[in-house]
């Protein structure tokens, strides 16, 4: 029952949490124990606010903890503050673009798994990203189930390393 309530509040007033979202990896079902199969710290980086907020909410509904930032710099800052397990980043962003961000993340914290998600689906970009060490490369608009699968796999990879 508590879980249901939490979902409802989140669904009806998602914006209330916005200000805090950049600080903490939120999870809707805080009361329950963390799901062992999904990552609890996901950082979403995308300048498309509507998109990324909705996505983060849907991921939270699937028992994952998420945080949202809208550009590369705040993403780097967020990593400093609290290192995420998985990052989902867009390629085309103002300031530091996705490719650059991916490079820096992989240099500083290679443990973080990065999923690249973009509306620009050229094979060249894909190859470049994979070479830079991205975990996977997805084409927008992405199917949530596919994304969840990918996130689970990424999490498994991290656990395997540890």
């Amino acid at each position: 029952m508590q879980k249901q309530n939490a979902i409802l509040t989140a669904a009806i007033k998602p914006s209330k949490n916005d200000a805090m979202e950049t600080q903490v990896y939120h999870q809707l079902n805080m009361s329950e124990k963390c799901n062992v199969e999904v990552p609890s710290k996901i950082l979403l980086v995308d300048d498309e606010k509507e998109f990324v907020q909705t996505l983060s909410e849907r991921l939270r509904m699937r028992d994952m903890g998420t945080a949202v930032v809208y550009d590369g710099n705040s993403a780097l800052a967020q990593i400093q503050r609290d290192e995420p397990e998985v990052m989902i980043i867009d390629l085309k962003m103002p300031g530091i673009d996705g490719m650059e961000l991916l490079k820096q993340v992989k240099q500083t914290c290679p443990r973080i798994q990065v999923i690249v998600m973009t509306g620009h689906g050229s094979e060249q970009d894909k190859k470049k990203c994979m070479d830079l060490g991205a975990f996977s490369y997805m084409q927008k608009p992405v199917d949530i189930n596919l994304l969840s699968e990918s996130l689970k796999k990424a999490y498994k990879k991290i656990k395997a390393v540890e």
Binding site: E48, T54, R58, K92, H120, K140, P141
Partner: peptide
């Protein structure tokens, strides 16, 4: 390229609606 972004939003929003309905 340009259309893919709004499409992604529509996709996520509708997905959220679906999530809410099923839950």
């Amino acid at each position: 390229h340009e259309i893919n972004n709004p499409l992604a939003i529509i996709n996520q929003k509708t997905g959220l609606i679906m999530d809410l309905f099923t839950l």
